[in-house]
Design a protein around this nucleic acid. Sequence first.
DNA 1: CTCCAGGCTGAAACCGATTACAGCGACAGC
DNA 2: GCTGTCGCTGTAATCGGTTTCAGCCTGGAG
Lengths: 356, 356
Amino acid sequence: MSSSPSIREVARFAKVSVATISRVLNGKGAIRESTRTHVLAAIAELGYVPHSAARSLSTRRTLSLGVVLPDLHGEFFSELIRGIDLAARRTGYHILVSGSHSKSAEANAVLAALHGRVDGLIVMSPVQQPADAKAAKAARPSIPPGVPVVMLNAADETSLHDSIRIDNRGGARALVEHLLYLGHRRIAMISGPEGNLDAAERMLGYREALAARDVPFVEEWVLAGDFREESGFRAGQRILELESRPTAIFAANDAMAIGCFAAVRERGLEVPGDISIAGFDDVPMSRYLSPGLTSVRVAIAELGARAVERLLIAVDAVGERPRHHEVVAATLVPRGSTAPPGGPTQSTATPRRNSR
Amino acid sequence: MSSSPSIREVARFAKVSVATISRVLNGKGAIRESTRTHVLAAIAELGYVPHSAARSLSTRRTLSLGVVLPDLHGEFFSELIRGIDLAARRTGYHILVSGSHSKSAEANAVLAALHGRVDGLIVMSPVQQPADAKAAKAARPSIPPGVPVVMLNAADETSLHDSIRIDNRGGARALVEHLLYLGHRRIAMISGPEGNLDAAERMLGYREALAARDVPFVEEWVLAGDFREESGFRAGQRILELESRPTAIFAANDAMAIGCFAAVRERGLEVPGDISIAGFDDVPMSRYLSPGLTSVRVAIAELGARAVERLLIAVDAVGERPRHHEVVAATLVPRGSTAPPGGPTQSTATPRRNSR
DNA sequence: CTCCAGGCTGAAACCGATTACAGCGACAGC
DNA sequence: GCTGTCGCTGTAATCGGTTTCAGCCTGGAG
């Protein structure tokens, strides 16, 4: 009673062979209707539930996908996992999630442990490659051979695996151009963590946009963050203390932008009246801030779903297959948190709210 | 080359038996040092990685835990999963996540599919039981016998499984008492989805707190929400249109409170000057809103970690064992978004920000 | 009546690991 | 020299499914 019966016990109970049970369960092969109902009755009677590990051992299919992420903080990952889960379940797959893999040694252990447990992997490891080739090789996640993989925003440009990337650079450029267009010339940036590829690319977009308009890049207007609210809050405080205060702040993600909001308000200043703020990712909540947060939209859930689709294609494929690389757009979403320096022309009391 | 070798191929290659390979891998039994290094060399040479499904079949341990959730929207679940993942990985476990199970039929399918894939389950199904006993039985998730389970905020009070619950009622009561203490008498509520247990309990706390102070309960001040920002936004709009406008709004979770913020601001009103707003859950972001959101703190990540601890105790236990039920506190966290009706005494320009 | 086709069912091999048990060699004790 | 012990290694059963292949039974054709 305490533990589930095996298929053999059901077979003995129903006085048929295990093969018959299996056939009934999987609907394969011809089964006489009377035995079918008889077997189903026995299954219900004993409360039999097939053992997935055993099944995957013989079918060589686990019907689950591994998702390896660097971190699990905040809405970005929540959305990503949601998108992945939805797409996976739609096709009968389950997902095995593992987070917090800044260290590559740790990530490798997880990757190894996932072997035989999943049919494919979605790996996000936005760690920039060391310039040194040897170190780079050591740092690269070691993925068991034969397991299909989709890399998300991967650092290495090799075509070992399929990959999907966000157009961080283009998105950041569009955002900074928007700020420049509004008339801002002193634009601070709160960057992401050191060594993070997304962070580096967004920074690059920022510099490119400035350079294209001959706006000088000022080192001290760039502050380090770590993609968390707290770091945005602190960076915001420091920016507001600068002598010639910037008129706009570009935070490398929404969480930091929100922290920055708090810093500005705590100082008794207004957004966007006294200073404009913009973020990146367009997490669902950003449109409900007041004023709405200008951001760069990355369809996070869709990104996850896309990764699943590509992965399943690879899983179903037989033999060698050319790698597929994809870049998803990141589009500017202007909202109330950015306005020309000195404040918006219309009243700040009615911030515009963008619908989807 | 394309697919991983099995232990037998390694054995053949190293000219030893499979038992020896296994012993080297698991550090069990005595192995001569020379054969050990020889075997390790062979393993490295072939790039062998043990097959987890096969291993779990014979050891009867999968080293993974199933997490079945009703939904994956927003920071609540992000935090919960993070807490669970961290605690699980600390003890060498992986987690299998599955979301969006409002339908119990669906949930049952998932539960069945997880059999043999996980050593234990953390199940959150905050669906209220139908009053009808027969329907109740059908709606209850059918969990394979012999699999240890920890229920999170479960609707049924049976002691079939271990459970951990949040003190929703007490938390809501404390929050509404806080509003009453500030002097509010017209307190609106944005409730959670119909049939959701947490939502129902929070509503109960609201009514109890009002009743204790002889403040009448007004039906039309209660609006339905679904725990998402959008519904909070819409409910907020409707509340502001009421004839004798409430002076405070209690949203059944933070996401809806944030949506409500937006509605209030869009109408050109101030929080808390014109109306106070409070939420529930205390998601990480709520302290970075401006003003900070008064909420009820539920240590979400710790809740997840706690569930893992309890589950692992059950997994390691042999034989029958008394069920364990636990209620975690929900404590009021007052921040700037609530103030006496008519506005705070001090300037609204410097909202107080609470540190953890 | 004989033979064959086709529908069902069962026996046994297999997936890839772990592990109980047996066996082997070396060495010490008597 | 014989035997017992100890350290190490190999053989084979086992976990719980799927699937190949063979065999039985029945009915219809010749």
